[in-house]
């Protein structure tokens, strides 16, 4: 059984990195995943996992992944919103694991919106 002692070790280690942490609290980018019944049924949990894993693997800082409920666009779920300070919100629709990784790669790392997955591209069809 995994013990709580390891958690104590993590605390010891992290207490010396307080600066890093307070920086993390002021995350400049929020990635929001719709996690209501519609989103979950459409595969939001897989998308969420892909986003979190990708951020963890690539050691991206100042980005937090969070969740929201149903925003009334159930047919477009899984929906992922990228909210960056001082910029317009970008809404990606019909996400899957691969698209989620692309969002991290293109939008979060390179700063380029993946237009073909946004809701705007759907609306202008």
């Amino acid at each position: 059984m995994k013990s709580l002692d390891e958690l104590k070790a993590i605390r010891e280690k992290m207490q010396s990195q307080i600066d890093l942490r307070s920086e993390n609290e002021h995350a400049s980018t929020r990635i929001v995943v719709g996690m209501a019944t519609c989103g979950i049924a459409a595969g939001a949990r897989t998308v969420l996992k892909a986003l979190s894993d990708s951020i963890h693997e690539k050691k991206i800082e100042n980005v937090i992944v969070t969740q929201t409920g149903c925003i009334g666009l159930c047919q477009y779920e899984p929906i992922v919103e990228v909210i960056e300070a001082g910029k317009d919100k970008v809404t990606y629709i019909n996400m899957d694991e691969k698209k989620a990784q692309e969002i991290i790669e293109q939008h979060i790392i390179r700063g380029q919106i993946v237009n073909e997955y946004t809701i705007n591209s759907k609306m202008s069809e």
Binding site: L7, I10, M14, N24, H56, K59
Partner: peptide, 16 residues
Amino acid sequence: EILGDIPFNSPEVSAY
């Protein structure tokens, strides 16, 4: 109780 104000979503804790 152990972590105090270290958040659950920090990478180390999340991995733990």
